[in-house]
Amino acid sequence: MFERFTAEARQTVTGAQAEARALRHRQIGTEHVLLALAGAEDATGRALREHGLGPDDLRARIVRSYRSGGDVLDSDALRSIGIDLDAVREATEQSFGEGALDAPAGKADRSRQGRVPFTPMAKKALELSLRHAIRLGHKEIRSGHLLLGVLHDGGFPSVRLIIEAGVDVEELRAEVRRLLTSKAA
C-alpha cells in the first residue's frame, strides 16, 4: 500500500512517527497522523490550520488527553490521600526530564529508538485512506486521503480532538473532498 503514497503522504507518516517519538508515546495513533498533517506545508495542512487546527494547539490537546484519559496514575485517588500528582509530575520532570512518568521504568529510551508501531486505529485509518483514494478514482494516496482516513470514524482519537477544538468534522471532510477533486490535497 505504501508504494501508492505520494512524497507528501510519506512525509506525513514519518512526521507522525517523529511526533509520537517526541511526545514519548509508544505507538503512533490517528492523533499523531493528524498532528503531522496539520504541520504540513500543503493544501491539506493549510485547510486544517484555516479551521483552527494548528500543530501547536493539537500537540497541546494530545498531551492533555494523554495525561487526563490515558494517565495510569489516578490523580483524584492520589489527591484523596494528600498527594498532588501535578506537583509530583513537575518535580519528577525537573529531575528526570519531560514525560518521565509517562513511560514504564526502563522503557523511556526505547521509544526514541527503532520503529514505533501504529495503533490498530491508525492502521485502519491508513487502510481507509486507500479506500477513499479508490472511491475518488485516484491511483495514488495523497495527504488529503490520509486526512479523510483519520476523519472517517468518530471513535478515532483524531476525530475527538477535532470535535473538542470546536471544528465541524463534516464541513472539514467536505472541504478535503473538494481539495482532492481539484487535486490540491
Results as ranks from 00 to 15, higher is better:
G97I: 00
E93W: 03
K139V: 14
D76G: 12
R89L: 05
V167S: 01
K124A: 08
A105F: 13
P120I: 02
V88W: 00
G166C: 11
R131Q: 14
D76Y: 08
H145I: 05
I134D: 12
E164H: 12
Q94A: 11
F118P: 00
D74M: 09
L161M: 12
E98Y: 01
E170W: 09
G144C: 05
S158F: 00
E93H: 07
V167L: 07
H138C: 02
K107A: 09
A103G: 00
G97L: 03
V169N: 04
S111W: 14
R110T: 15
V159Y: 01
E164P: 11
S95L: 14
Q113F: 06
R135Q: 15
A133R: 02
L126A: 07
D153P: 07
E98F: 07
P157H: 04
I134C: 01
M121H: 10
S80L: 12
G114H: 05
G97A: 01
H132L: 08
R142H: 10
S129V: 11
E140L: 14
V72C: 03
T92W: 03
S111N: 06
A122C: 13
I83F: 09
K139S: 14
V150P: 07
P117C: 03
E127V: 15
L148A: 05
T119N: 09
I134L: 13
R160E: 13
D109R: 13
L101R: 06
A77F: 13
L101K: 03
G99C: 05
G149T: 05
A87R: 15
I163E: 15
A122D: 08
V88M: 01
M121C: 03
K124L: 09
K139P: 00
G166N: 07
L148P: 08
D76H: 12
L146V: 09
A100P: 04
P157W: 01
L151G: 06
G144S: 11
L128S: 10
R89S: 02
R142I: 00
L136W: 01
T92F: 06
L136C: 04
A87M: 01
F96K: 11
A77K: 13
L147S: 04
L126M: 15
Q113D: 13
D86N: 08
F156M: 06
L136S: 06
F118M: 11
L148Q: 01
L151S: 05
A87F: 01
R115P: 12
P157F: 00
S129I: 07
T92R: 05
I163W: 05
H138M: 08
A108E: 13
D84H: 09
G114D: 09
V169P: 07
A91D: 13
P104E: 07
S95N: 08
